[in-house]
Amino acid sequence: MRIFDPHIHMTSRTTDDYEAMAAAGIELIVEPAFWLGQPRTNIGSFIDYFDGLIGWERFRAEQFGVSHHCTMGLNPKEANDEALAREVLALLPRYLAKDRVVAIGEIGFDSMTRAEEYAFQAQMELAVEHDLPALVHTPHRDKAYGTQRSIEIALASGISPDRVIIDHNNELTFQYVRDAGCWAGFTIYPETKMDEHRLVRIVAEHGMEKTIVNSAADWGRSDPLKVPRTVQALREADFSDADISTLVWDNPVAFFSQSGRLELTDEHGPADPSATFAGNSVLRGAREEG
């Protein structure tokens, strides 16, 4: 079964993860731009991070046969450093134009501040201007209200609801998202946001329309194999392969194809394990070098 993890922060993961993901059937990923666990303090750190998402990380993934795409955006936490946020917003158009940038994101709310709202609105305008879908993160605290407000702000930009994913839903929030006509993302975490068995109950009851599953694995306690584990849980619950495939491949492909920048067929040929990127070889010791 072809598997697409449409939200995973590979910059924080190891080559062991890439190897395990490829072995589990993950062939396509989207890495949303996010924060690093601590705030950046200058624009250069954002530039280097964005360069990494379209450069080194894409190259690293290719070595394992995983096709890497990304979203670009200013995350809600760092939107609160208002001076720096203005600089990042001015920088973003350059990166929104890149190949394999399939949405603007993660944007949205963390603490529901005015600064977060400003950056969210500004980036929804950029999404419309650059004809890109939007990936919206929802807050951990006061989640139901935060989700409703996020939908309101996203759609106020005039973007079609079909082009918006509201992510990190739970049993109580996803109905708001469906009712608004947006796509609902479910993040399968080891303990917190959602687990694969709860997800099975939700799709058994409500179907899979405009529904997406991801691992959102990052530098915290998380699991890059949560999408394949969800496939397993769905099989155990007697879902057909065709249904499972809708959830873990067809749906995210349909959503991100709206960017016109999802590269499904490998135009670059097979991964070249002897290649190096900017002085680094991922497969150390495997290369023919003096």
Binding site: P93, R94, A97, D99, E267, H268
Partner: peptide, 22 residues
Amino acid sequence: ARIFPAVGRHVGRGPLDATADR
């Protein structure tokens, strides 16, 4: 700045000389 990154999406990424080794 907007056009330069988009070039491959519009003109393709294959070899300029059709007989060249990829």
